[in-house]
């Protein structure tokens, strides 16, 4: 692409990545979550692909597929943690420790250390969506080139 597109992409990319990470990280406090933040980061990957060419993301293809499987496995394992009660039981909520702080009833004060397994599941689904949609975009970009994929 032209130098204008590349310059604007260099300015815009850190902001988009930071916003996607914010949406995933605060999924249990604000609107959004793993799927939405993952979609935002994957669109940033599409911007990288369009602005800097297909060759810039080619070496990350195996990493993306590995992250996709890691996100899926982490999600199922987090569901299996609550298997003594029921599948997807939230065993970390309200017992102290990691994300175990309980919330007072009423309006949202914005405590980050709450909600049990929900932030971890947000990160698992976020990794899965980033890697899945990112690898779809990368595969579409690499298709039909003269070099092997």
């Amino acid at each position: 692409m032209s130098v204008v597109v590349r310059t604007i992409a260099r300015i815009l990319l850190p902001i988009v990545f930071a916003f996607g990470g914010y949406v995933i990280m605060h999924g249990h406090l604000t609107p959004g979550g793993g799927f939405q933040g993952g979609a935002v980061v994957a669109s940033a990957l599409a911007l990288v692909l369009v602005a800097f060419g297909e060759a810039s993301l080619k070496k990350y293809k195996d990493l993306l597929s590995a992250l996709e499987s890691l996100g899926g496995v982490a999600f199922v394992v987090l569901g299996l943690i609550g298997i003594p009660f029921t599948f997807f039981a939230n065993v970390l909520a309200g017992v102290g420790g990691l994300f175990g702080q309980s919330v007072p009833p009423g309006p949202n004060p914005g405590y980050l250390n709450t909600a049990g397994t929900l932030p971890l599941m947000n990160w698992a689904v976020g990794l899965k969506v980033i890697a899945g949609l990112g690898s779809v975009v990368v595969l579409f970009g690499l298709f039909g080139g003269e070099d092997d994929r």
């Binding site: 939405q36 935002v40 669109s43 911007l47 692909l49 369009v50 975009v137």
Partner: peptide, 17 residues
């Protein structure tokens, strides 16, 4: 947020590619 990320950005990028 999901519609803006998926529908407006990713689908357009995939179609353009």
């Amino acid at each position: 947020i999901a519609e803006a990320g998926i529908g407006a950005a990713l689908t357009t990028a995939i179609f353009i590619l």
